[in-house]
Nucleic acid binder design. Structure first.
Lengths: 138, 138
DNA sequence: TGGTTACTTGCGTCATCATGCAAGTATTGG
DNA sequence: CCAATACTTGCATGATGACGCAAGTAACCA
């Protein structure tokens, strides 16, 4: 069974990892440690999922009711997610409203997938006629 | 200017974050701390980017040449990425070959984007006729 | 068989960070 | 003006994890 492979197979594969590391590509910028660090905590992910599923902006007090941790912890997590560009923050009087930046988030993840795929299709590993399989692109 | 909104607007938005938190959805499983933890370190991301751009499987020794950190650090990072399902690991004699699981990674990111978008479109915030804007879906 | 290569593992150290409590600030309502 | 509400910030603590060095293991070669 032939995998469908476009004729334009992406950039030429570098000779070695050392050369690969020197190359600057879209994927380098999109593999942003700060984004993943912000998402690397279970509590933060629960709060984020809660906000996403809620489908409207929520105050810190509201979100804190979803979670067994201290209020201050929730407040800090939400502020951090906002600093990372994952949430929109809006102050109204004494209330902080947070809402997920869904389109931005989706776009980032899709762009990352696209950027990876570019290289995934770049090497002979994806050519079914070569020994291949090196980058797992099967 | 009207944003294009499908008539099927996703699940009904929960009344409160507390209800939202109780709901089990695809997005909960895809927001996996372990994946993001694995991607939360700058050194690991450099190694991963290197492997992606290289377009073929690489040995630990090869990858270590891209990076100024100790060899053992590189070996540990690659093993961790493999445990997280981000890399494929293959032992051949005394050589460990690592290669990114590009299609898997892309699929995970795209699935996550899809799962978020489901909820993004769920609430009145996405309805241009409502006061909206709550979840940042503009 | 003995040395080299390639990687793994143990250990100590240092930095980061998640958490809870308590105190502080700012806004609102009576 | 005072008290309640909503959030922020400081601080101590404990846990996690990244790193380098050194020692260990396993495969290969001469």
């Amino acid at each position: 069974m032939m995998t469908q492979v476009t004729k334009h197979a992406g950039p030429k594969p570098p000779a070695s990892p050392r050369h690969a590391a020197r190359r600057r590509a879209t994927v380098d910028k999109l593999l942003d440690p700060d984004l993943f660090k912000a998402l690397a905590d279970p509590t933060r992910l629960k709060l984020l999922a809660c906000l996403i599923k809620c489908g409207r902006r929520c105050s810190v007090t509201e979100v804190a009711e979803c979670c067994s941790v201290d209020f201050s912890v929730v407040a800090r997590h939400l502020a951090l997610l906002a600093r990372a560009g994952i949430l929109d923050a809006e102050k109204e009087g004494r209330t902080m409203w947070y809402a997920p930046r869904c389109p931005d988030l989706c776009a980032r993840f899709r762009a990352l997938a696209d950027a990876i795929e570019v290289w995934c299709g770049s090497a002979e590993c994806c050519d079914p006629n070569s020994d291949g399989g090196a980058c797992g692109c099967r």
